[in-house]
């Protein structure tokens, strides 16, 4: 690890994620049809698109929950290959939050958060718990540390999931429809935690249908359709002046 060439990280400081012509098939179905984009350090990118457009597949390729079939993905200077060590290094730099929370139901909240730091980073128990308590405070639920996930509301569970992802001190956070499984009154508490994270300078890719969130914190909006990156722009320009017909149609449908 110490012998890692320094120039690699200096050239890569600004470009956290580089995707070049990323393609992915599920059998004969083409989920990604050549995605090329670059995401800079500290950038908050919101991904929009109809279901089945490949947006979820795209971010799942970034931390190798899916294997891309063609093209290149480079995360913080590390190219994604089949090499397991590479994959594990990249994964430990990326936190991910899922639509269905996916907390570990057999572990208490605090143990959910400390599991990876203790077992992957090899932190001592005291250090990882201290960090976990800090993170739970940051997402606003320090009093739930001793409970089990099933005892929490959906919004609280999702905030635990955010704390769990942050516990590995990632450089990048991926959000795959983090509020879609939540009751309306709980969406705000999760979005607030995400906004706070965005303001702290985290590089984020967020798949969401929350237009308000996109307008408020996104630096850029990507619009996916049929496996293609159809349009990308700043939120202002994207929402006020969409260029493509498909974008216009989509926006008219979700804003109606």
């Amino acid at each position: 690890m110490a012998t890692e060439p320094i120039e690699q990280s200096t050239t890569a400081t600004d470009e956290m994620i580089v995707a070049e012509g990323v393609k992915k098939w599920f059998g004969s179905f083409k989920a990604l049809d050549g995605i090329t984009t670059t995401i800079k350090r500290g950038e908050v990118v919101v991904v929009l698109g109809p279901s089945g457009s490949g947006k979820s597949t795209f971010i799942r390729c970034i931390n190798r929950l899916e294997r891309h079939d063609e093209g290149r993905i480079v995360v913080d200077g590390i190219e994604m290959t089949d090499d397991l060590r590479n994959i594990e290094r990249i994964r430990s730099e990326i936190g991910m939050v899922f639509q269905s929370f996916n907390l570990f139901p057999h572990l208490r909240v605090i143990d959910n958060v400390t599991l990876a730091p203790r077992n992957v980073r090899r932190w001592p128990k005291a250090k990882s718990e201290e960090k976990a308590v800090q993170l739970l405070e940051r997402v606003g639920i320090p009093e739930q540390a001793e409970k089990y996930p099933a005892q929490l509301s959906g919004g609280q569970q999702q905030r635990v999931a955010i704390a769990r992802a942050l516990a590995m001190e990632p450089d990048i956070m991926l959000f795959d429809e983090p509020t879609s499984a939540l009751d309306p009154e709980m969406i705000k508490e999760v979005l607030d935690a995400m906004k706070e994270l965005a303001r702290s300078g985290m590089t984020m890719i967020v798949i969401t249908h929350e237009i308000g969130f996109a307008k408020e914190v996104a630096d850029r909006v990507l619009f996916f359709d049929s496996g293609l990156l159809v349009e990308e722009n700043t939120p202002d320009a994207f929402f006020s002046d969409p260029q493509h017909d498909r974008t216009k149609l989509f926006l008219s449908q979700i804003l109606a």
């Binding site: 936190g95 899922f98 269905s100 996916n102 992957v120 590995m168």
Partner: peptide, 27 residues
């Protein structure tokens, strides 16, 4: 055990062995 558990375990960086031992098998 729901497949989301595998994904969550992988996403936080657990190796396959640790994923099985700490997340999947206990459940």
């Amino acid at each position: 055990v729901h497949f989301g558990q595998y994904e969550a375990a992988r996403a936080v960086g657990l190796s396959t062995t640790r994923m099985m031992a700490l997340v999947i098998l206990p459940q």
